[in-house]
């Protein structure tokens, strides 16, 4: 029996929405460059989460817990390495090279 893939359809619509929102904010508003970057960066993260859960089976199978642990650990490392380095090398934000 085939169930109507409601999850996939919703995911697809949300993805479209997020993409158009990002394009609209980037092309049709006169916000400052920095604000735009933050907003579309934020939307990209939401979009990534959406894709992972709706399409990429991250919540399924016997490995679902370890998949989330892996992703969170990866994010932790990326934040530490990138944000940490910027913070330290700009001398706590007081010094710009």
């Amino acid at each position: 029996m085939s169930r109507f893939p409601i999850g996939h359809v919703l995911g697809f619509l949300f993805s479209l929405l997020l993409t158009f929102a990002a394009a609209g904010i980037a092309l049709k508003t006169s916000l400052s460059f920095k604000t735009i970057m933050w907003i579309i960066g934020g939307l990209a993260v939401v979009q990534a989460g959406l894709q992972l859960t709706m399409f990429m089976h991250v919540n399924e199978g016997e490995d679902r817990h370890s998949q989330w642990i892996n992703i969170l650990y990866g994010v932790f490392l990326a934040v530490i390495i990138v944000a940490g380095s910027i913070w330290v090398m700009s001398f706590g934000g007081t010094h710009s090279h």
Binding site: F76, L77, I80, W87, V88, F91, G92, H95
Partner: peptide, 18 residues
């Protein structure tokens, strides 16, 4: 262990906060 690396170069002088 991922959160302590700066202790090897405190004397770079990254400031009181860091």
């Amino acid at each position: 262990s991922m959160l302590v690396w700066v202790h090897h170069f405190y004397t770079m002088g990254a400031g009181a906060a860091v």
